[in-house]
Design a protein around this nucleic acid. Structure first.
Lengths: 227, 227, 227, 227
DNA sequence: TATGAATGAGGCTTCATTCAT
DNA sequence: AATGAATGAAGCCTCATTCAT
């Protein structure tokens, strides 16, 4: 009995190790350049063993994608609930931003992975499932924007304007975080990210917006010069 | 003499045809899935001939990247000059936005291309050169933001905050434009893009900001055309 | 004691179930495309267990081959004995034909299996054993042909001419039965098979041969049923 | 000009060498057990070169199949024409038999190859093309049988009875030729094959058949004993 | 100068068999 | 005794780049 359980557990543990190794390698080397053999090597198992756990390389990637999206959804849900108790209407937006910016490299990786899988049309059903999860994320944010519009705090435009714009900003922030061109220029990344989040949270605010809280509010005359 | 010139010209013309064909194919099939053979076929020359013009496939891609970045810089420069004559201080930001959104698919492709080349560390020097061009773009925008800060129109933070945030928003807008998940949701793409641009142009505005002009609210005869 | 017997019996029963499952799968999917895992699944036992019964996949196949050949021999023997009592000299030939045509798909499968095993030279001794069984089949037929030659009913040629030719015809009939190219053309398979059998039974007949009895010409109440 | 021609010729020659090598290996080792690498090795070219000539391993096999079928059709056509001039009505059947028996190993190999390709449903369109060629073969034989029926020389049954039975016999003869079980028994292969052909040619003959011409017509009391 | 045939490293996946539990 | 996770050899195919003509 116990032995059987143990075995199952060891099996699951190995599955997780495969996923972890794949993610590590993906983060280290990029989507291209990671081979099944490499993953196996890192987990220190045979190449064939991978295929006891996953039917294809794509399935490994899809699992990573789903896991990430689910954890995002989970964190967002918690944040929304907490926020509603406290009456902080900007909390969901902040939670979303923070969730995605928690590990921008990972976030970005998963975008690329998803894009590739969609383009090559591997695993269309799993992609649908993924998008279903994502839509549940979207609706939480959408509700926030809609409520604020009703309260007259936001300019009235179609709600998806807000959500889309906000998404775009976060997406861009993720790219920015990763960008090697900006790396030299950005001295205070934390400050910048806060600034961006603040911009995001106040998109469309009609008036009397709280000025962005930044650790840099003291006027810094000359930032780094681009070119 | 003339013959030699003619020859050189034909050579250059073919080079351009190779670049055009590569871009077309890239746009049609995505970064992966374009082979040197396909390019040669479309130009209707031999595969070997390509290697008379470019030492590697990567070099072709780098050339496309550089050309794109330069055209961006060029357009931006013109816009800035025009704007300065007319005193429209938001013009550079708008020009930048419009330039990148003129063909979002292309813009996005080049991001991916660049990313790939950086990741695989093919052609590090060319990448440096590319970034130099980009920085010259950045400085034009930076100057705008700095001037507006000096005029007290923008909250005082390091100038790169503005530029980075703006860049992030545009970057995100490009992704948004392309995104298949959003495609169903976005009914009025033009309107949305204008909305985003407006958000971008007014990042950090201290007060009395003009509410975003949206085609949903005011009939704007001729907005910029995207895509 | 009883327990031990029971155990042995269960063991044998399972062995048979493995063989049955293998045959089913082989018939369903063809020689290639059947894996040990599939067999284990269908029997609902572990893959490893199969190897408690058979040292290799080839051994399973060899067992199927032997069993088939033995059942063929058995049926043939019975038919010959019955026929001799009744004085019907063509009975063995008919019995042989009917035996092999009883399930042409199976017969054909075993040809292929044997061929494969011979080609790859797996299990040479078992193949010898198989051929020994088959030769015992041959001798029954041979005796018939020899007797008929002695009776002046058949042209005198080496007896193996008859047997070989007859074998060839039956072999071909099996293939014909299975052939997809012929499927469209053959409207009356029963009639055709009877026709072929008749041709076979009368190979070498010296004179006054009974014209082939075909269901197209004479109403034969109960012919042998094929397949 | 000449150079270009030469090049094309060398290319074609190599293609033929690939086909020849593949056929050789197939004949030596059987369908399974021949790898693309082996073929390349034997031709002394790189693995990749094979794929300049053929899009897949299956295509190589299909080419062999088609070439064989075409040569069969060609030989048959010539034989039929010659026969018609000379009034020898059995000539097409003989030609067909002889064509297929010219190299029984090859004939058998191609059956197996075709079967495999059909089963795995690789290349369905090429298989159709193959069958089209084969049908042209069939009709030539069919016409012979029909004419003989009209002349009252053959029992009247559906024409496909004759063709199918004849096909089955030839098919079986091919297998017989190859069979290792029969190898020891068959002392005079030529004689046997002639015997079989004669049986085939006279299938359904109504009367006064020429006795089979065999080099063994002298009564050999005891052929080899089976078992 | 232009060509395209040739190359071969490298990637993904399958499956019979072994062996620790 | 039964299991099934693990193995790794082996197979097919792709494609950037080279080089002889």
């Amino acid at each position: 009995m116990d032995k059987a359980k143990e075995k199952v557990q060891r099996f699951r543990a190995r599955e997780q190790r495969i996923l972890d190794a794949a993610l590590e390698l993906l983060l280290e080397h990029g989507e291209e350049k990671v081979t099944v053999e490499q993953i196996a090597e890192r987990v220190d198992i045979g190449k064939g063993t991978i295929y006891k756990h996953f039917i294809s390389k794509t399935e490994i990637y899809m699992r990573l994608l789903m896991d990430y999206e689910r954890s995002l959804a989970e964190r967002l849900k918690v944040a929304v609930e907490n926020a509603e108790e406290k009456g902080d209407i900007t909390a969901p937006a902040r939670a979303y931003f923070e969730s995605r910016m928690a590990d921008p490299g990972k976030d970005r990786l998963f975008q690329r992975l998803e894009e590739k899988i969609i383009t090559l049309n591997l695993a269309p059903e799993m992609i649908s499932e993924l998008h279903a999860i994502r839509n549940s994320n979207a609706s939480a944010l959408n509700r926030v924007f809609e409520r604020r519009m009703e309260q007259g705090m936001l300019k009235k435009v179609p709600a998806y304007y807000y959500y889309s714009t906000y998404w775009a900003l976060v997406q861009g922030a993720v790219e920015l975080y990763h960008s090697k061109s900006f790396a030299d220029v950005i001295e205070d990344r934390e400050g910048l990210m806060e600034f961006i989040m603040d911009v995001g949270v106040h998109i469309g605010d009609i008036s009397s917006r709280k000025p962005p809280a930044s650790s840099h509010t003291t006027g810094q005359a000359a930032g780094p010069s681009f070119g």
